[in-house]
Simulated assay, not measured.
Amino acid sequence: MDLLKAVADRALRLVLLLAAVATASFFLMVNSPVDPVDAYVGADVAALGPEQRAQIAERWGFGDPALERFGAWLSNILQGDLGWSLTFNQNVSEVIGERFLTSLALMAAAWLLSGVIGFGLGVLAGVRRGGVTDRVVTWWAYTLASAPTFWVGLLLLYVFAVSLGWAPLCCAVPIGVLAEDVTLLDRLGHLVLPAVTLSIVGVAPVVLHTRQAVIEAMESDYAAFARAQGESTLGLVVHRVLRNAAAPALLLQFGSLGELFGGSVLAEEVFSYPGLGAATTDAALGQDVPLLLGIALFTTVFVFVGNTIGDVVHAKVDPRVTRVTRKRQAV
């Protein structure tokens, strides 16, 4: 019963969240100062006559009342139809599916790198609290926390692609090479710089939170008791501290999926990486309302699922979370 209740509660929260995101996103889009006809036509808008403008507006429903457009769009959504992308001239669901697969490799690599490196450095800084290692790692983390993704990407691109020539300048695959001729090594080579950019920016919160968790664990009563029993620092860290520090780090990692997606938008623009982030930018510049709304809903589900997985993993790693939750529900 507890499991069914928890699943039902999560499902209800997701439905309410999607409804709120859909409503807010739609009315933000339709009230944008950008003329949708101008955005749709692009550079040839100067040659557009009044009759042609009216035909385009009628074809895509730009002139319909906002509530009527929202009702039609919502009705299609409930039938599983996300609409038609004006930018890519195909179904929104197809655009999201194709572009997300490309972005998934980038975000997964960056997510793993930032988690592993951030956790390792956070543990090292916490154990060496007050020392040179702690100061260097903490300074580095605070510096990265304030560094814009766009700036970090441009810096890495200039150093490793332009100056040193160690990495490709752009794209997810080599330019001019047929899809069937692209190797896994080619894809990995084009993935490295964007993934490193995202992971560098995302590593700072993990480092700082892990460091604080390690410091608290090292100063706890059970740590003092273990030292009194002759436990070495290494043994204390391996057997007692890592588990306590891993719980908040995992929760933070799964909770950062929204920031990860936001960072991928900038990183993909810098490296011309054809993922969902780049599609979001193209849709925004082209006032492609169906695609923007579809991406907003998809991102909402993506982040919500990530947060839910983070809660479950956190509870598994740290059983105290489950006990506190049950006490609150009982009260």
Rank of each mutant, 00 (worst) to 15 (best):
L112R: 11
G262R: 01
A330H: 06
P205E: 02
A296N: 13
L242M: 10
L104K: 11
A105T: 10
F304V: 05
R227I: 00
F70C: 07
G120T: 06
A141C: 07
W84G: 01
S75F: 12
V21E: 04
V331D: 15
T281P: 13
V241D: 01
G235S: 11
W73Y: 14
V182W: 03
F302W: 10
F261Y: 09
A204K: 00
L184W: 14
R129H: 08
A245E: 07
T197I: 10
V173Y: 04
N76S: 10
G122K: 01
H314G: 07
V132R: 10
S103N: 11
V331L: 14
I309V: 13
P274Y: 05
D221C: 09
V123Q: 05
W111A: 03
L28D: 08
P274N: 07
L104H: 09
L17C: 06
A172C: 12
R323S: 15
Y40F: 15
A11C: 14
S199D: 04
G126M: 06
A246C: 08
V37S: 10
D181P: 08
V41S: 09
G153C: 05
F26A: 03
L18N: 10
P36G: 03
V265N: 00
V265E: 00
N76L: 07
V152E: 00
K316H: 15
L169G: 12
F100V: 06
Q90W: 06
V214E: 04
A249H: 01
Y142P: 06
V95I: 08
D38C: 07
T300L: 05
R129G: 01
A228V: 13
A246R: 06
N91Q: 12
T87C: 07
G258W: 01
G97R: 08
P290S: 09
G115K: 02
M107N: 07
L208M: 10
A226W: 04
I200R: 00
G306H: 02
L285I: 09
R326Y: 12
G286H: 03
I77V: 14
T197K: 03
G118L: 04
T308Y: 08
V331C: 15
V37N: 09
T149Y: 01
Q287G: 03
V7Y: 09
V177E: 14
V312R: 09
T308L: 08
L292F: 14
Q253P: 05
L292G: 03
G310E: 01
S75H: 15
W166P: 01
W84R: 06
